[in-house]
Design a protein around this nucleic acid. Sequence first.
DNA 1: CCGTGTCGGTTCATTATTTACACCGTTGTT
DNA 2: AACAACGGTGTAAATAATGAACCGACACGG
Lengths: 256, 256
Amino acid sequence: MRTVEKALRLLDFFSDKMPEIGLSELAKLSGIDKTTVLRMLADMAECGLVEQKTDDKKWRLGAGVLRLARLREATQPVTRVLTPILERLAEQTGETAHASLLSGRDLANIGVVEPARANRVHIEPGLVLPLHATASGIAVTAFLRPEQRERVLARKLAAVTGQTPTSRERLAELVDRVRTRGYSVADQTYEDEVYGLAMPIFGPDGFACGALAVATPASRVTKAHEAAIIAALAPAAREATLGLGGRPSPEHRITV
Amino acid sequence: MRTVEKALRLLDFFSDKMPEIGLSELAKLSGIDKTTVLRMLADMAECGLVEQKTDDKKWRLGAGVLRLARLREATQPVTRVLTPILERLAEQTGETAHASLLSGRDLANIGVVEPARANRVHIEPGLVLPLHATASGIAVTAFLRPEQRERVLARKLAAVTGQTPTSRERLAELVDRVRTRGYSVADQTYEDEVYGLAMPIFGPDGFACGALAVATPASRVTKAHEAAIIAALAPAAREATLGLGGRPSPEHRITV
DNA sequence: CCGTGTCGGTTCATTATTTACACCGTTGTT
DNA sequence: AACAACGGTGTAAATAATGAACCGACACGG
């Protein structure tokens, strides 16, 4: 279909686990012909988005992404604003805190701070979080513009774990609950044994543009621990919204 | 010509000075038809590379670039390695220090540290530096693989200032001088009143993959100041090379 | 030493995608 | 009220993307 999007989707195959990919490998992964993949990679390399190692000819993300990120940070310092908030959140809760922003049709993880304890949740940097399968995603969906929310509900929902909501009804139910409670709970919907709590970050238009989340091992969850996390999350999310120049939604009220 | 490259080139119109661009404006800037630009932006937005503001419909870089940058830093921590080196360099020389990496056909500025004095050179974050018109660029060109170097020399060279080398002969002369001296000098070749000194950073293959540079107001340049900067630059560049997992080139010797 | 598989990369005819023109509705200005 | 500029949409023509076959290089195994 659209060539540009197909090319850019290739970038999503690079991950923490697989930072370098060979031509044939990427062609197999994406299901696109080798020739096409090569042309796309060459084009993206020309612009610095990817680069090819000289020794084994494998491809990886290029220096251009660093430049673009710096450029965005220069006028929109989200990482700088979010990092101290995440650090405080991780310290207060003793759990892994992370932030993500709407990016295309999904959520892009753009900051993680892990607490100083042995048993903690690890979150891969630069992960893409599906809107329907994570606490952050559902928190964002709940406070999207109605027509956008509708579009998310209408998607076909892939099951990530056994707990992932896959029907429109189930997801709508979760979203509704978040709208009344003000925070989102994901019990092993994205990864087994991981329990997530999240709250939306609002943009200047009063709709969600991202989320702040705390992830804990499911075994450690108690009523009290959850309440403590929510209590820490609420001011942190508010601070994040204001720090990014957003406007809190009047519809967002936390009820425990 | 190639659609993907054309689309990605649109990203280069975003800068520190112009972080948000409207559709028609971008069409005018790029010389591409409105329809096409819109489709390309939509495709890139789908992947998170750009996003559209809801209020004035202008476009800007998206959260996806932050994700990609994080991903690259996770496996290749160049910013983390380079920042302390730049800070030391800026302090030692009292001048603006910056680092850039090969990115496509040009050099991408990925780190700047300005000294704590009033009269200093300001360098825009995320700037793209032409290989032929900057100290960094010529330093890199001088220690590229011979065939790549040849390709750079064969380009048509745009004049940025009155001092920019525009003929192949002039550029080759500058490059040769850098190969014997080990460092590069750019006297107002990119910006008036700015004097640049640079040294290459080497990749694992022993060829240049970037540069470390110090920029000073031309009015402040003296023999002694220049010597002091070179003396600070040499160990810094070596440290950068090693810190990034590179191998210093045996052909790189500094002669003052 | 010769098959065999895989790799990155190239060629070229076919096809489907991109493209540009005109047009629409809205907004803000004169 | 007329006008211009903006973001965005349809459609027909043309250009650019596509994928099968192919090439040389390399590694492995008999």
